[in-house]
Simulated assay, not measured.
Amino acid sequence: MKNIKAFALTLVCALLTFSACNHKDSAKAYTALVTYEAENGNARLQLNDSTVLIPSGLKPDKDTVVRALVNFSFTDDLGENSTAPVRNVEVYDIASILTKKPVEDLGIDNGINYGDDPIEIIEDWLTIGEDGYLNLRFSIQRSNPSVAHGIALVKISAGSGDYVFELRHNANGDGYGNFYDGVVAFDLNEFRPSDGSPINVKIKWKGYERQKEDFIKVTFRKQ
């Protein structure tokens, strides 16, 4: 039986251990982002806000809920474009990515506690808001593989339709050298509206040339 593995850094380099990546070659072997969790002793993969994948031969990790990259094929006879809420699949490869919750705003102490080093968000299929998670593909500079970098999403304001976050990077003195990519998922399910409607999230971050900001819509699982 297959076990979920920590994201091997051959496709997209996950924090906090890195391997050099080429933007064009990244994530070739993985075709979808899912939420991996266990249910009644079985593994289930939430493909999007309305579709669950039931994998054969995939051993669940107890009490594990993480975002993951997966390569799979459908094994039922419903067709590739079916919108059925449950699909049976065979999983060829699956790897968890760093999954975290937002952290509290510490005001002037944010830099000291969460870092103030530059970071870039890459716009591709890995940067998306779905199933209550904000998934971000990012790029940073580093030179020493023995130095652990940190990444955090700071909750600046939330509530009454106003959701503002700040992405922080702590290079721990290793903020130079070649650029490396990473993927992280932030769990925003605590901000799910009672009716399950999407939220608009404003993200601010310190880029390598200037301060930046962008909006990403985060959708939530149908209940």
Rank of each mutant, 00 (worst) to 15 (best):
M1V: 13
N3H: 15
N3P: 13
T10G: 15
L15G: 11
S19L: 13
C21M: 14
A27L: 06
T31P: 05
A32I: 03
L33K: 02
L33G: 00
V34R: 04
Y36T: 04
E37C: 13
E37D: 13
R44N: 11
R44P: 04
R44G: 05
S50I: 00
T51R: 02
K59M: 14
P60H: 07
K62S: 14
T64C: 15
N71C: 07
F72P: 01
D77K: 15
G79P: 06
V89F: 09
I94M: 12
I94Y: 07
S96V: 08
L106G: 01
I108R: 15
I108G: 06
I108F: 13
E120D: 15
I121S: 09
D124M: 14
D124F: 12
D131P: 05
F138G: 04
S139Q: 13
I140E: 11
Q141R: 14
S143K: 14
S146I: 01
A148C: 02
H149F: 09
H149E: 03
A152G: 03
K155L: 02
I156L: 10
Y163R: 06
V164S: 11
A171Y: 05
G173Y: 06
Y180D: 06
G182Y: 00
N189M: 06
S197D: 00
P198E: 02
I199Y: 07
G207I: 09
E213Y: 08
K222Y: 13
Q223E: 05
